[in-house]
Amino acid sequence: MPRPVTVTYKVWSSPAEVALASARLLAARVEQAVATRGIARIAISGGSTPQATFKLLADPSQPFLTTVPWDKLQLFWVDERCVAPDHPESNYGVCRDLLLSKVPIPEANVFRMEGELDPEQAASRYESLLRNTMKLEGAESPVFDLVALGMGPDGHTASLFPNTAGLDELNRLVIANHVPQKDTWRISLTWPVINQATEVAFEIEGPSKTDILAEVLTGPRDPERLPSQLIRPSNGKLLFLLDEAAAAKLPKASEVFTTPDGSNKVGTLEI
Protein backbone atom coordinates (compact mmCIF):
# COMPACT_ATOMS: atom_id res chain seq x y z
CA MET A 1 0.00 0.00 0.00
CA PRO A 2 1.27 3.53 -0.76
CA ARG A 3 2.10 5.82 2.13
CA PRO A 4 -0.81 7.93 3.46
CA VAL A 5 -0.69 11.56 2.38
CA THR A 6 -2.64 14.61 3.51
CA VAL A 7 -3.57 16.80 0.57
CA THR A 8 -4.21 20.48 1.28
CA TYR A 9 -5.89 22.39 -1.52
CA LYS A 10 -6.18 26.15 -1.49
CA VAL A 11 -8.69 27.73 -3.82
CA TRP A 12 -8.71 31.22 -5.35
CA SER A 13 -11.29 32.78 -7.62
CA SER A 14 -8.99 33.40 -10.59
CA PRO A 15 -5.81 32.10 -12.26
CA ALA A 16 -4.14 35.46 -11.57
CA GLU A 17 -4.61 34.96 -7.84
CA VAL A 18 -3.23 31.43 -8.08
CA ALA A 19 -0.14 32.73 -9.88
CA LEU A 20 0.44 35.29 -7.14
CA ALA A 21 0.05 32.62 -4.47
CA SER A 22 2.56 30.46 -6.34
CA ALA A 23 5.06 33.33 -6.53
CA ARG A 24 4.65 33.99 -2.81
CA LEU A 25 5.14 30.30 -2.02
CA LEU A 26 8.36 30.12 -4.03
CA ALA A 27 9.68 33.31 -2.45
CA ALA A 28 8.84 32.10 1.05
CA ARG A 29 10.52 28.72 0.55
CA VAL A 30 13.65 30.38 -0.81
CA GLU A 31 13.80 32.79 2.12
CA GLN A 32 13.23 30.00 4.67
CA ALA A 33 15.86 27.72 3.19
CA VAL A 34 18.44 30.50 2.99
CA ALA A 35 17.74 31.51 6.59
CA THR A 36 18.18 27.88 7.70
CA ARG A 37 21.28 26.80 5.79
CA GLY A 38 22.37 29.63 3.50
CA ILE A 39 21.14 28.17 0.21
CA ALA A 40 17.83 27.26 -1.46
CA ARG A 41 17.25 24.59 -4.10
CA ILE A 42 14.06 24.84 -6.13
CA ALA A 43 12.93 22.68 -9.07
CA ILE A 44 10.43 24.26 -11.46
CA SER A 45 8.24 22.91 -14.24
CA GLY A 46 7.46 24.08 -17.75
CA GLY A 47 4.19 24.44 -19.58
CA SER A 48 1.89 27.43 -19.77
CA THR A 49 0.66 27.57 -16.16
CA PRO A 50 3.85 28.82 -14.43
CA GLN A 51 4.45 31.60 -16.94
CA ALA A 52 2.27 34.05 -15.03
CA THR A 53 4.21 33.19 -11.88
CA PHE A 54 7.53 33.88 -13.63
CA LYS A 55 6.23 37.26 -14.79
CA LEU A 56 5.16 38.20 -11.26
CA LEU A 57 8.51 37.21 -9.76
CA ALA A 58 10.24 39.53 -12.26
CA ASP A 59 7.71 42.38 -12.05
CA PRO A 60 9.27 45.58 -10.62
CA SER A 61 5.90 46.52 -9.11
CA GLN A 62 5.98 43.37 -6.96
CA PRO A 63 8.29 42.92 -3.95
CA PHE A 64 10.05 39.75 -5.15
CA LEU A 65 12.87 41.44 -7.04
CA THR A 66 14.18 42.94 -3.82
CA THR A 67 13.01 40.49 -1.15
CA VAL A 68 14.08 37.16 -2.68
CA PRO A 69 17.77 36.38 -2.01
CA TRP A 70 18.40 35.54 -5.66
CA ASP A 71 22.14 35.08 -5.19
CA LYS A 72 21.46 32.20 -2.77
CA LEU A 73 18.96 30.40 -5.02
CA GLN A 74 19.97 27.34 -7.02
CA LEU A 75 17.36 26.74 -9.73
CA PHE A 76 16.73 23.33 -11.28
CA TRP A 77 14.19 21.92 -13.72
CA VAL A 78 11.66 19.15 -13.19
CA ASP A 79 11.57 18.30 -16.89
CA GLU A 80 12.49 19.50 -20.34
CA ARG A 81 11.49 19.02 -23.93
CA CYS A 82 14.15 17.66 -26.28
CA VAL A 83 14.78 20.94 -28.06
CA ALA A 84 17.52 23.56 -28.07
CA PRO A 85 17.43 26.24 -25.35
CA ASP A 86 16.41 28.91 -27.88
CA HIS A 87 13.50 26.86 -29.18
CA PRO A 88 10.10 28.39 -28.27
CA GLU A 89 9.06 25.10 -26.59
CA SER A 90 12.10 24.94 -24.32
CA ASN A 91 11.07 25.05 -20.66
CA TYR A 92 14.39 26.67 -19.82
CA GLY A 93 14.09 29.16 -22.68
CA VAL A 94 10.66 30.36 -21.56
CA CYS A 95 11.86 30.79 -17.99
CA ARG A 96 14.99 32.61 -19.17
CA ASP A 97 12.97 35.09 -21.20
CA LEU A 98 10.29 35.74 -18.57
CA LEU A 99 12.31 35.51 -15.35
CA LEU A 100 16.02 34.75 -15.42
CA SER A 101 16.93 37.65 -17.72
CA LYS A 102 15.18 40.07 -15.35
CA VAL A 103 16.31 39.00 -11.85
CA PRO A 104 19.78 39.04 -10.23
CA ILE A 105 20.31 35.27 -10.10
CA PRO A 106 23.90 34.28 -10.89
CA GLU A 107 24.27 32.30 -14.11
CA ALA A 108 26.25 29.68 -12.18
CA ASN A 109 23.16 29.03 -10.03
CA VAL A 110 20.96 28.06 -12.99
CA PHE A 111 21.05 24.35 -13.81
CA ARG A 112 19.18 23.62 -17.00
CA MET A 113 18.51 20.27 -18.63
CA GLU A 114 20.31 20.05 -21.98
CA GLY A 115 17.38 19.30 -24.25
CA GLU A 116 19.49 19.70 -27.38
CA LEU A 117 21.51 16.55 -26.58
CA ASP A 118 20.63 12.92 -27.16
CA PRO A 119 17.88 12.27 -24.55
CA GLU A 120 19.74 9.50 -22.70
CA GLN A 121 22.91 11.58 -22.63
CA ALA A 122 21.03 14.62 -21.37
CA ALA A 123 19.39 12.58 -18.60
CA SER A 124 22.69 11.04 -17.55
CA ARG A 125 24.42 14.42 -17.50
CA TYR A 126 21.66 15.97 -15.41
CA GLU A 127 21.77 13.10 -12.93
CA SER A 128 25.53 13.60 -12.60
CA LEU A 129 24.99 17.33 -12.15
CA LEU A 130 22.52 16.70 -9.32
CA ARG A 131 24.88 14.27 -7.64
CA ASN A 132 27.85 16.61 -7.89
CA THR A 133 26.00 19.80 -6.95
CA MET A 134 24.27 18.23 -3.96
CA LYS A 135 27.23 15.98 -3.04
CA LEU A 136 25.12 12.82 -3.20
CA GLU A 137 26.57 9.37 -2.66
CA GLY A 138 25.31 5.94 -3.64
CA ALA A 139 21.54 5.65 -3.68
CA GLU A 140 20.98 9.06 -2.09
CA SER A 141 18.28 11.23 -3.61
CA PRO A 142 18.40 15.02 -3.87
CA VAL A 143 16.15 16.91 -1.48
CA PHE A 144 14.76 20.08 -3.03
CA ASP A 145 13.27 22.77 -0.81
CA LEU A 146 10.36 23.02 -3.25
CA VAL A 147 9.31 21.11 -6.33
CA ALA A 148 6.71 23.06 -8.31
CA LEU A 149 4.51 20.89 -10.53
CA GLY A 150 1.70 21.23 -13.01
CA MET A 151 -0.72 18.62 -14.28
CA GLY A 152 -1.87 17.96 -17.81
CA PRO A 153 -5.44 17.19 -18.86
CA ASP A 154 -4.35 13.55 -19.25
CA GLY A 155 -3.18 13.37 -15.62
CA HIS A 156 0.55 13.57 -16.37
CA THR A 157 2.98 15.57 -14.28
CA ALA A 158 6.62 16.43 -14.94
CA SER A 159 7.24 14.44 -18.15
CA LEU A 160 5.74 11.30 -16.64
CA PHE A 161 2.99 10.56 -19.14
CA PRO A 162 0.35 7.81 -18.95
CA ASN A 163 1.56 4.30 -19.79
CA THR A 164 5.18 5.33 -20.44
CA ALA A 165 8.27 3.44 -19.31
CA GLY A 166 9.38 6.24 -17.00
CA LEU A 167 6.59 5.45 -14.56
CA ASP A 168 8.38 2.23 -13.60
CA GLU A 169 11.78 3.76 -12.90
CA LEU A 170 12.68 3.58 -9.20
CA ASN A 171 16.47 3.87 -9.13
CA ARG A 172 17.42 6.70 -11.47
CA LEU A 173 17.24 10.38 -10.55
CA VAL A 174 16.66 11.60 -14.11
CA ILE A 175 15.33 9.73 -17.13
CA ALA A 176 14.81 10.06 -20.84
CA ASN A 177 11.15 9.16 -21.25
CA HIS A 178 9.70 8.29 -24.65
CA VAL A 179 6.16 9.65 -25.03
CA PRO A 180 4.49 7.76 -27.91
CA GLN A 181 1.28 9.79 -27.71
CA LYS A 182 3.31 12.90 -28.57
CA ASP A 183 5.85 11.08 -30.75
CA THR A 184 8.69 12.65 -28.79
CA TRP A 185 11.20 12.20 -26.00
CA ARG A 186 11.28 14.16 -22.76
CA ILE A 187 13.80 14.48 -19.94
CA SER A 188 12.37 14.26 -16.44
CA LEU A 189 13.08 13.88 -12.77
CA THR A 190 11.71 10.55 -11.58
CA TRP A 191 8.77 10.43 -9.22
CA PRO A 192 10.79 9.02 -6.28
CA VAL A 193 13.04 12.11 -6.50
CA ILE A 194 10.05 14.46 -6.55
CA ASN A 195 8.63 12.70 -3.49
CA GLN A 196 11.77 13.44 -1.45
CA ALA A 197 11.31 17.21 -1.62
CA THR A 198 10.69 19.24 1.52
CA GLU A 199 7.58 20.59 -0.18
CA VAL A 200 5.76 19.56 -3.34
CA ALA A 201 3.14 21.91 -4.75
CA PHE A 202 0.88 21.61 -7.79
CA GLU A 203 -0.40 24.76 -9.49
CA ILE A 204 -3.51 23.90 -11.53
CA GLU A 205 -5.99 26.19 -13.23
CA GLY A 206 -8.97 26.13 -15.55
CA PRO A 207 -11.97 24.00 -16.51
CA SER A 208 -9.87 21.68 -18.67
CA LYS A 209 -8.40 20.27 -15.44
CA THR A 210 -11.64 19.96 -13.43
CA ASP A 211 -12.48 16.33 -14.18
CA ILE A 212 -8.94 14.96 -14.21
CA LEU A 213 -8.04 16.65 -10.91
CA ALA A 214 -11.08 15.18 -9.20
CA GLU A 215 -10.21 11.76 -10.61
CA VAL A 216 -6.58 11.99 -9.47
CA LEU A 217 -7.51 12.98 -5.91
CA THR A 218 -10.81 11.20 -5.29
CA GLY A 219 -10.98 8.40 -7.87
CA PRO A 220 -9.57 4.86 -7.85
CA ARG A 221 -5.81 4.50 -7.77
CA ASP A 222 -4.53 3.92 -11.30
CA PRO A 223 -1.11 5.62 -11.66
CA GLU A 224 -0.35 4.00 -15.03
CA ARG A 225 -3.26 6.00 -16.43
CA LEU A 226 -2.99 8.91 -13.97
CA PRO A 227 0.73 9.46 -13.25
CA SER A 228 0.04 12.40 -10.93
CA GLN A 229 -1.15 9.81 -8.41
CA LEU A 230 2.50 8.74 -8.03
CA ILE A 231 3.27 12.02 -6.27
CA ARG A 232 3.00 11.12 -2.60
CA PRO A 233 5.75 13.02 -0.72
CA SER A 234 7.68 11.12 1.92
CA ASN A 235 6.79 13.77 4.51
CA GLY A 236 3.10 12.92 4.07
CA LYS A 237 2.08 16.39 2.85
CA LEU A 238 1.04 17.59 -0.60
CA LEU A 239 -0.15 21.07 -1.57
CA PHE A 240 -2.43 22.12 -4.44
CA LEU A 241 -2.90 25.75 -5.48
CA LEU A 242 -6.12 25.90 -7.50
CA ASP A 243 -8.59 28.27 -9.05
CA GLU A 244 -12.31 27.72 -8.59
CA ALA A 245 -12.71 26.16 -12.02
CA ALA A 246 -10.08 23.48 -11.41
CA ALA A 247 -11.44 22.74 -7.91
CA ALA A 248 -15.11 22.60 -8.95
CA LYS A 249 -15.51 18.83 -8.47
CA LEU A 250 -13.45 18.43 -5.30
CA PRO A 251 -15.16 18.24 -1.91
CA LYS A 252 -16.12 21.77 -0.99
CA ALA A 253 -13.33 23.61 0.80
CA SER A 254 -14.89 25.19 3.86
CA GLU A 255 -12.12 26.49 6.09
CA VAL A 256 -11.32 30.14 5.37
CA PHE A 257 -7.76 31.41 5.16
CA THR A 258 -6.88 35.06 4.76
CA THR A 259 -4.48 36.50 2.21
CA PRO A 260 -3.62 40.13 1.49
CA ASP A 261 -6.20 39.92 -1.30
CA GLY A 262 -9.05 38.72 0.92
CA SER A 263 -10.50 35.49 2.23
CA ASN A 264 -10.19 32.23 0.32
CA LYS A 265 -10.99 28.57 0.93
CA VAL A 266 -8.86 25.65 1.97
CA GLY A 267 -9.77 21.97 2.13
CA THR A 268 -7.97 18.72 2.97
CA LEU A 269 -8.14 15.15 1.74
CA GLU A 270 -6.49 11.96 2.87
CA ILE A 271 -5.20 9.91 -0.06
Rank of each mutant, 00 (worst) to 15 (best):
T67D: 05
Q181C: 05
A28M: 05
A27G: 04
Q121K: 15
F240M: 00
F111Q: 03
E140W: 09
Y9F: 10
L242W: 04
D79C: 11
P207V: 08
P4R: 06
D243F: 11
G262P: 08
L146N: 02
V216Q: 06
I44Q: 01
I271M: 08
S234W: 13
Q229H: 06
T53I: 05
G115T: 02
P15H: 09
A253I: 10
W185L: 07
A246P: 07
E199T: 08
E203T: 13
R112I: 07
N163P: 00
V256W: 05
F257M: 08
P260S: 05
Q51T: 13
Y92Q: 02
L241R: 01
P85E: 14
R41Q: 14
Q196R: 15
T49V: 14
E120A: 09
W185C: 04
A16G: 14
P180E: 03
E140V: 10
V147F: 04
N195D: 12
E270P: 00
K265Q: 15
P15Y: 08
E17G: 13
E203M: 09
A33S: 11
F161D: 00
R186G: 06
V200H: 10
V143A: 00
V200C: 08
L149T: 00
L173D: 09
L241G: 04
L25W: 04
P50L: 11
S48Q: 14
L242T: 01
G47I: 04
P227Q: 03
K182T: 04
K249N: 14
R225Q: 12
S263Q: 15
A35G: 12
R172T: 05
Q229F: 07
N171A: 13
D168I: 01
S128R: 14
K102L: 06
V11H: 07
S61R: 14
G150F: 02
V179Y: 06
A176D: 03
A40F: 11
E114A: 15
A23F: 10
G206Y: 08
H87I: 04
V143K: 08
C95R: 10
C82F: 10
A19R: 11
T6I: 04
M1C: 07
T66H: 12
T268G: 02
P15V: 11
T210I: 02
F240S: 00
G46C: 04
R131D: 05
A148D: 12
N91E: 11
A148M: 15
V103G: 03
N109W: 04
E203C: 06
E127R: 08
E140P: 09
E120F: 07
G236T: 03
F240W: 08
D79M: 12
G93A: 06
I42Y: 12
M1T: 11
Q62G: 04
N195H: 09
T164Y: 01
C82L: 10
R37T: 10
R131I: 03
F161M: 00
L170H: 15
S188I: 09
E215Y: 00
V78K: 05
W185S: 07
D261R: 11
A245M: 09
T53A: 11
R221H: 15
E224P: 00
K265L: 15
K102A: 01
P119I: 01
L230T: 05
E89D: 15
A52I: 07
